[in-house]
Design a protein around this nucleic acid. Structure first.
Lengths: 210, 210
DNA sequence: TTTGGAAGTGACCGGTCGGTCACTTTCTGA
DNA sequence: TCAGAAAGTGACCGACCGGTCACTTCCAAA
């Protein structure tokens, strides 16, 4: 499938150089097609490539992880069950981005903010973002109603949760992009250790309990 | 002071368009100088402007807030005192970025990741980042040793804390850049409400307590 | 008033990049 | 076999941008 090959190449180039730094020539070269062919498949050019990638790789990947790790009917009736469920979710997110599709993560990290700047696609991006947050907020709301979580508004909590995962991934990029060692040691350890750590901080809280 | 005028203009343009989108012509135009003058003051051009701004505005501002809100000798002997101290710190950070210097925040948010990509200045950027994290980690370590916080490693906790502030600011940008209303309502409320919310999540934890 | 250097300037240069389109190659079905 | 359509191509174009430098303006000291 030509389309997929072009998207793969575009993802790799966006992940490596960011949106501005990516050149359509390089994308076409890596996909082993002429630039004209690329424009046959994506008349909108660079812009359309970025949007489609965000839609089909980033947003779709996130929804897949959410559906798998926090399925309808997951037990959220007690604090312990809720903690376990979200611990698994955080771990699944980290594994997805770090291992399954690293390029997706890099594009997501480096260019996340850009989605707010492109007026043409603003509505589309906003829809995807809101969809992800909503999908995470739903089980949170459920757990709040069951008395398993503090009575906090669900969407802000979902923002916080996703923001912390994002923060961990940023730190990973730091450590990776820094051969001189200024950022080492990697602040969170492995993906599993990071999931444990994030879960402890977010669900148990930083304050000591007797 | 010419230098300051140029830096002010550069900060405004970087905040508005990001690093790639900013043109040296526009910076010179806004500073009301010829482009040549700009190169007299900053021979390194765009790159040097960005680095100096990051150094003198972003990093210096963060250190000022830290020194003011978490001074040496602040009481971190009990969970309650620690919670109060960091609540004040989070509030001070949000106020600094949202009210005192919005452009600084925007540049910081939009281009934070870029600092990892510019090899020439990598060491300088890394030093500033590490310095900020260290300054936050120091009181955290103190509180951990006093038994006020869980026995978690201080630097990762500092990362988490700063990452959450960053996440809130990102959400603010979203809400601000979205006239069509897809992101509304602003997920965290005012800066003070956001500080309360973040403190609750991070220090008390999400799980319900009987 | 003169003068020499410091400060300021913007037209210009080389290079890059997104996008186009006239042309070539490949496919298909009659 | 062949003709016409579909798919593929890359040289080229115009726009833009960072950085330069020969020139002008300013100013302070003599």
């Amino acid at each position: 499938m030509r389309r997929t090959a072009i998207l793969d190449a575009a993802l790799a180039v966006f992940a490596e150089h960011g949106y501005e730094g990516a050149s359509v020539d390089e994308i076409a070269f890596r996909a082993e097609f002429g630039k004209g062919t690329l424009y046959n498949y994506f008349p909108g050019g660079k812009d359309e490539l970025f949007f489609v990638l965000f839609e089909e790789r980033v947003a779709a990947g996130l929804h897949r992880v959410i559906a798998h790790a926090l399925p309808d009917g997951v037990d959220l009736s007690t604090p312990e069950a809720t903690r376990t469920a979200f611990h698994g979710f955080i771990r699944a997110l980290l594994h997805f981005f770090l291992e399954e599709s690293r390029d997706t993560m890099l594009m997501f990290m480096k260019e996340g903010y850009r989605t707010r700047l492109r007026v043409e696609h603003e509505a589309g991006f906003a829809e995807h973002f809101a969809g992800v947050i909503d999908a995470v907020a739903r089980p949170i709301q459920q757990a709040v109603e069951a008395g398993a979580l503090r009575p906090l508004p669900a969407r802000p909590v979902a923002h916080i949760l996703m923001g912390n995962v994002r923060g961990f991934l940023m730190a990973e990029i730091d450590a990776e992009c820094d051969p001189s060692g200024h950022f080492e040691p990697a602040p969170f350890g492995t993906a599993d250790q990071a999931a444990d750590f994030l879960t402890t901080v977010l669900f148990d809280g930083l304050l000591a309990r007797d």
